[in-house]
């Protein structure tokens, strides 16, 4: 129910943003970031409500993961106003809002059953909570990097391209440390505690590693390639695609230790 209200709010925000996108030199609207913030807070309330019901952080199923992603993305869309390089940009919050809506739409699909279930023994771990939440927060920043990298590739205006490049890099520079800690390090620590093996090349681990290698390649290539390189932003787009495959594809298409999650 709460998720549906958040969805409605984000739709309203999207419509307002579209109106402003078509306004010539209209600047950025003042309303939609606040709507986005409200949607984020509502989703946070939903996560807290579910957590209280199971007396554990409710972050263990597909539904809860999607709600969490949408929640933090909505909050980040609001926070973008405080990023020097993204301030005043209308297209990035617009793209990110669409992706937040996609996350929520997927959450309401039958692939993501929403009943509240307490965790099985393997999932009862503080490291798991850190692992999942850091990974998703990192991915929320990757989402903004993804939107900005696309814009960086399609824009013809050199000044805009440079400004998008800064947003892309800032997003990855924030998301990458969080993702590294969450997906790889906390994940490995949890695996060691739960199964006695910190790395086992199961498909989910392997795909998380591919995601990380892709962003690592981005960060290094950006140090040595010309600023007009198209390959550099392309790696950010590929990285996001791989991250999403790690999240959805591995659960539904490939099986492994993680397939219960």
């Amino acid at each position: 129910m709460i998720a549906t209200i958040a969805f409605g709010l984000l739709i309203v925000s999207l419509i307002i943003q579209i109106v402003y996108l078509f306004k010539k030199n209209g600047g950025q609207d003042r309303v939609s970031p606040w709507i986005s913030l409200s949607a984020g807070i509502l989703l946070l309330v939903e996560i807290v409500r579910r957590s209280i019901a199971i007396r554990f952080v409710a972050l263990t199923g597909m539904f809860e993961s999607l709600i969490f992603l949408a929640c933090f993305l909505a909050l980040l869309i609001f926070a973008l106003r405080y990023f020097k390089s993204a301030k005043g940009n209308r297209v990035i919050p617009f793209g990110a809002t669409i992706i937040a809506l996609i996350f929520l739409a997927l959450a309401s699909s039958p692939l993501a059953p929403s009943e509240i279930k307490p965790p099985v023994p393997a999932l009862q771990s503080g490291w798991l909570v850190l692992h999942v939440s850091f990974t998703f927060i990192g991915e929320v920043f990757f989402t903004v990097g993804f939107v900005s990298a696309i814009l960086q590739l399609v824009t013809k205006n050199e000044e805009k391209r440079q400004s998008y490049d800064r947003v892309t890099y800032t997003s990855i520079a924030v998301g990458y440390p969080i993702f590294t800690a969450g997906a790889l390090i906390f994940g490995a620590i949890w695996a060691e505690k739960a199964w006695g093996v910190w790395w086992s090349w199961d498909p989910k681990e392997t795909w998380a590693l591919i995601t990380w290698l892709t962003y690592t390649a981005y960060l290094h290539l950006r140090l040595v390639r010309k600023s007009t390189s198209r390959l550099v932003p392309t790696l950010v787009i590929v990285g996001f695609a791989v991250a999403m495959f790690t999240f959805f594809g591995v659960n539904f298409l490939l099986k492994g230790l993680h397939s219960y999650a």
Partner: peptide
């Protein structure tokens, strides 16, 4: 890094 990622894709 890209090569290693591609190997991992094959393994994944």
């Amino acid at each position: 890094l890209v090569l290693l990622a591609l190997f991992a894709v094959a393994g994944g």
